[in-house]
């Protein structure tokens, strides 16, 4: 089929597929002049692609409609690597320190594990903290430490904390 016979719909499908291959989040709504800037890689990046780990998003409480006293509270931690790359393996190490009534991490188990980054360079872990007693609740601090599994991917670590207070 000659390209000139392409409908806008068909062309959009091709563009969407092609842009997805380089993970563009959206197609531009209007045409802009293509721009190119070229340079030389810094020395430390010339032999391997290294990343920087960060945690720009605050921990997020996930509402599952559950009973905190009997089912626990779920907190989502998110780590981000720059430049964003899919498939980089990150290690999380979780710890819950009770300052009042005790509680425990029930999910994930074990509390040290790995998760791969997605196409946006993000990795998440959902953590459930359950009061040891459903009658007393728990108060304490949940902490995650993120690090790279493979030092060739990056070397820094980052930690996040979330204060938990479940009154029952």
């Amino acid at each position: 089929m000659p390209a000139s016979k392409l409908s806008r719909r068909d062309a959009l499908k091709v563009l969407a597929a092609a842009s997805g291959a380089v993970a563009l989040s959206h197609l531009p709504t209007s045409w802009g002049k293509p721009e190119l800037q070229a340079g030389v890689l810094p020395a430390h990046a010339q032999t391997s692609m290294t990343h920087v780990l960060s945690a720009p998003f605050p921990p997020e409480e996930i509402d599952l409609g559950q009973s905190y006293c009997y089912d626990g509270i779920v907190i989502r931690f998110t780590a981000v690597i720059t430049p964003p790359t899919a498939g980089i393996s990150l290690q999380y190490s979780l710890n819950y320190t009770a300052s009042g009534a005790p509680g425990s991490i029930t999910v994930p188990s074990p509390t040290i594990g790995t998760v791969n980054t997605n196409g946006s360079g993000q990795a998440t872990v959902d953590v459930t903290v359950l009061p040891d007693s459903p009658f007393f609740g728990t108060t304490g601090t949940l902490t995650v430490v993120w690090s790279f599994v493979n030092p060739a991917d990056g070397t820094n670590t980052v930690s996040q904390s979330y204060d938990i207070e479940i009154g029952c």
Binding site: L15, A18, P28, P34, L36, L41
Partner: peptide, 16 residues
């Protein structure tokens, strides 16, 4: 040792 930055339109052409 080359790095090339492309804006959205440039990236679109590259992807095609």
């Amino acid at each position: 040792n080359v790095i090339i930055y492309l804006n959205t339109s440039g990236a679109l052409v590259w992807s095609l």
